[in-house]
């Protein structure tokens, strides 16, 4: 039922859009403009110091850093990790209340008002892309003025994760056909902020879109390809110069 959801009244939207993101690690410098842009757009709670110590910091997109080698021949690699919106998502079949499912636009969706907080999905996500609200997220009264009215403020006891800025997708595609929406006409907050343009977002069902063309890039790879999760998020490998 919910594992391979194709809502019954699939309209032409099911073939119109398939949203995807491509992240070029060779352009990424690890500046984290994406991280803060996402927090601002999606009402992600403020991570107090204690959140990091308890291991409960919220970042829908986070920047992971890996070391390679030892001083002086050492490299740091950055990789922004967000929900990969897997075609074959491990989080979806384990949800007992169908609060997470794959929609007909290629997105892995989390429905907050369905979620009962079993956290099975979070445990099953190999990318650790999901975060659980152990506490009611609080903002000081004044800072609530900044909250985005287009995005639900989550409550205690629900799981949340990257939605690919679905509020922006909805707004941009509302009552429109794909041909009305030029490639790159709108972007999720992270892609929009990325200073090196390492991130690209677009419609895979449009063969002319930038993301479609990048699917054949020689540097492409999916994170944990061997797990068979079939992510729609594609990474392009970093390039190392020989002898450097």
């Amino acid at each position: 039922m919910a594992t391979q959801t194709k809502p019954q009244s699939a309209t032409d939207r099911s073939t119109a859009f398939k949203w995807s993101m491509v992240i070029d690690l060779d352009r990424c410098t690890g500046c984290e403009a994406c991280v803060v842009a996402c927090q601002s757009e999606n009402n992600v709670p403020i991570n107090e110091e204690s959140a990091f110590i308890e291991g409960r910091a919220f970042e829908w997109i986070r920047l992971e850093r890996y070391w390679e080698g030892e001083w002086p021949d050492i490299k740091a690699r950055f990789i922004p990790v967000l929900c990969q919106h897997c075609e074959n998502a491990p989080c979806e079949p384990v949800c007992p209340v169908y609060a997470t499912y794959h929609n007909n636009e290629g997105l892995n969706v989390q429905v907050y008002n369905r979620c009962v907080g079993t956290r099975y999905c979070g445990a099953n996500c190999p990318y650790h892309a999901r975060q659980f609200n152990f506490w009611e997220p609080v903002w000081p009264e004044d800072l609530r003025h900044q909250l985005n009215p287009d995005v639900t403020v989550r409550t205690r006891g629900v799981m949340e994760k990257c939605s690919m800025c679905i509020q922006r997708i909805r707004r941009a595609t509302r009552s429109k056909t794909p041909s009305d929406i030029p490639d790159g006409a709108f972007n999720p907050a992270c892609v929009q902020a990325c200073p090196t343009s390492a991130m690209t977002f677009g419609n895979l069902n449009n063969p002319e879109s930038k993301v479609s063309k990048l699917q054949n890039d020689e540097r492409r790879y999916h994170m944990f390809e061997h797990l068979g999760t079939a992510p729609t998020t594609l990474y392009l490998k970093q390039v190392d110069t020989h002898g450097a």
């Binding site: 809502p7 019954q8 929609n103 939605s163 679905i166 509020q167």
Partner: peptide, 16 residues
């Protein structure tokens, strides 16, 4: 109403 009119019934149409 959405069903009757072949409008999207994807949860994320309204819930996000």
């Amino acid at each position: 109403c959405h069903r009757d009119n072949n409008a999207p019934t994807d949860c994320a149409t309204c819930h996000y």
